[in-house]
Design a protein around this nucleic acid. Structure first.
Length: 425
DNA sequence: TGGGGTTAT
DNA sequence: ATAACCC
């Protein structure tokens, strides 16, 4: 059978969470250095989605309305950030850079990455033992200012981890000009929670003994990554308000309310336990482009909006080099009662003869695609009745590599990703 | 709230 | 196809 790799206890892993500072604003400051020392906000529609620290000092917050932001800070400079292309490109550069250190890099949104550095730590530990060098130093903050026990192998491993995290941040700054925070801990949950403890451009390592303090510092359960809006509401109904409540809550009742899978997972989270692996993201699973608006009420308008979305999207898919086999249209309908948030979608396979044309640069795929998308639209909306849309989104998914026999010179986001782990013989 | 993403059911 | 989660 297979050579048995010694099982590693979960507490022994070393995970880094890298979180870039106000990412969109940083990218805009690189694009236009004159914005460096001025209060800057990135605008999407009537929202300031993020802003630099100059603006934060003056009272601007993330996701503040443009109106409120201008009132708080009349000198605020706004740039439009509705086209995510520059952010997406920079985001992948960061992920690729981390991928040079280690293959286990998982993206979370555009501005966060998890890296499993367990093997790098092991390697350095061996090097240290051979060289007989005993001067090791922690990089950045230690959560709670906890004293390091140099006799404790776990402490030493995480300290080495802090040095690696420092190297990550240095490389990201030197090569890409970006600053960010990092958290080092024994699992993803803890590394993410600890990375935010010292904020901009700093890093923190969590030693296991301080885990209960970090968990207790969370004033509300929704601060736990993995517990979102819906679960929070249902937990509140059960009288669960803080993390301690969740720890103490009867498992059986929780399982009945949320299902075994969710219940067991979030109760472990409440103790700071998370055995989920760092899953390498690789190239994207889907490409989508969307636009929101006040109103769209006719078929002609819908067609126009779709025709606006497609060229940019097709360009991205083309640059990726893979062929999508599914297309989806998503809409959001206006409703005063439902307080929005309900989207609906229809998807269908892309006909093989159209799939073939994705490799080419020709734009004669556009009109057949528009036809398909309009059919999907009519499956959701009776165009003979009045309607009121506030969002349209087009998504290409089910991406497959083109047959290796005839592939041209195509630029990939990520070079060769590790092939799907086979039967391992 | 925007304009994206992922996984589970 | 939807619903939940993440940023």
């Amino acid at each position: 059978h297979r050579k048995s790799v010694p099982a590693r206890s979960a507490a022994c892993r070393a995970i880094v969470h890298v979180d870039l500072d106000c990412f969109y604003a940083q990218v805009e400051m690189i694009r236009n250095p004159e914005l460096r020392d001025k209060p800057l906000g990135v605008q999407q529609k009537y929202l300031v989605v993020t802003c630099n620290y100059e603006a934060r000092k003056l009272g601007v917050k993330k996701l503040m309305s443009v109106k409120d932001a201008k009132e708080k800070c009349p000198q605020l400079i706004l740039v439009n950030g509705e086209d995510l292309t520059p952010y997406r490109e920079m985001s992948y550069k960061v992920t690729e850079l981390l991928g040079e250190f280690c293959p286990l890099v998982e993206r979370l949104g555009f501005d966060e990455n998890f890296v499993d550095i367990t093997e790098i730590v092991d390697k350095r530990l061996n090097q240290l033992q051979q060289s007989g060098c005993s001067t090791v130093c922690v990089s950045g903050h230690v959560y709670n200012d906890q004293a390091i026990n140099w006799q404790d192998a776990t402490h030493v491993r995480l300290v080495i981890g802090s040095q690696i995290a420092e190297e990550f941040r240095e490389a990201i700054h030197a090569r890409l000009g970006l600053t960010g925070c990092a958290g080092v801990a024994s699992n993803k949950l803890l590394s993410k929670l600890v990375s935010g403890t010292f904020k901009p451009n700093q890093q923190t390592v969590l030693l296991p003994e301080s885990c209960p303090d970090l968990i207790r510092s969370l004033d509300h359960i929704q601060k736990l990554p993995g517990i979102g809006y819906k679960t929070t509401k249902r937990l509140e109904t059960l009288g669960v308000r803080n993390v301690c409540d969740l720890q103490a809550f009867p498992s059986a009742v929780l399982e009945k309310e949320l299902g075994v899978s969710v219940a067991q997972r979030i109760q472990k989270l409440s103790y700071g336990e998370d055995d989920s692996p760092v899953a390498p993201s690789g190239p994207p699973q889907s490409f989508s482009d969307e636009d929101s608006f006040k109103q769209c009420s006719s078929e002609v308008e819908v067609k126009q909006k779709i025709e606006e979305l497609l060229p940019n999207l097709l360009d991205r898919v083309h640059k990726d080099g893979r062929q999508p086999h599914t297309v989806r249209l998503t809409i959001r309908q206006f409703s005063s009662t439902d307080k929005w948030f309900s989207r609906e979608s229809r998807q269908c396979p892309i006909p093989p003869h159209l799939v073939q044309k994705f490799g080419k640069e020709s734009s004669d795929i556009i009109s057949p695609l528009v036809d398909i998308l309009m059919k999907l639209f009519r499956k959701m909306i009776d165009v003979d009745l009045p309607f009121h849309l506030t969002l349209l989104s087009v998504c290409f998914s089910n991406l497959k590599d083109l047959p290796s026999s005839k592939k041209g010179s195509i630029g990939f986001y990520l070079k060769q990703m590790s092939p799907p782990s086979g039967s391992g013989k």
